[in-house]
Design a protein around this nucleic acid. Structure first.
Length: 155
DNA sequence: GCCAACGTTGGC
DNA sequence: GCCAACGTTGGC
């Protein structure tokens, strides 16, 4: 069982969008970075848990937890010439890009903000907090996972 | 809107 | 294979 952090822009697809989906489940498409792709394709397993992180918004932070309910499979949005995520190099025979399905498991109310994460000494060295980090999918250690869970309101 | 950091592209 | 130019990310 692995832990992850997945970034999304709430103005584009945030926790409220996922919450409104049937079974609170949606595929996580549009990853167009090879390092993130490799995590999705090779390392994410059904049953893994991930923090759902809101970026590029007024209050960046972790909005909740999702479960990987389907392991990596080809991202078909790369094959739609009219779509935002079209990539002519990708084809069903050679997909290049992959996605997983995620289901909303828990909502943090309030979210655990980036400012709070930075303030927690237990999270020193966390990849998310390293400067210049731009990866949209990041592995999270068990220690980091537990430290962040403690920061969330029990609800 | 600004800007630093980073990944990708393409000329050579 | 090098590296400058360019585009994107993402916090502020």
């Amino acid at each position: 069982m692995n832990y992850w952090l997945m970034k999304t822009e709430p103005g584009c697809f945030g926790l409220t969008h996922l919450k409104a989906r049937p079974k609170r489940t949606e595929h996580w498409d549009g990853v167009r970075n090879y390092q993130a792709r490799n995590f999705i394709r090779d390392d994410m397993r059904k049953g893994d848990l991930a923090f759902f992180y809101h970026s590029s918004c007024a209050e960046p932070g972790i909005a909740g937890i999702v479960k990987i309910v389907r392991a990596g499979y080809p991202d078909h949005t790369a094959w739609n010439p009219d779509g935002e995520h079209f990539d002519p190099k990708s084809s069903p025979a050679n997909p290049i890009w992959y996605m997983v399905d995620v289901r909303l498991e828990r909502e943090f109310r309030p979210p655990v903000t980036l400012a709070a994460l930075k303030h927690n000494p237990a999270l020193r060295g966390m990849k998310l907090l390293e400067r210049g980090n731009r990866l949209s999918i990041l592995p999270v250690t068990g220690r980091e996972w537990n430290a962040i869970l403690k920061m969330a309101d029990p609800g």
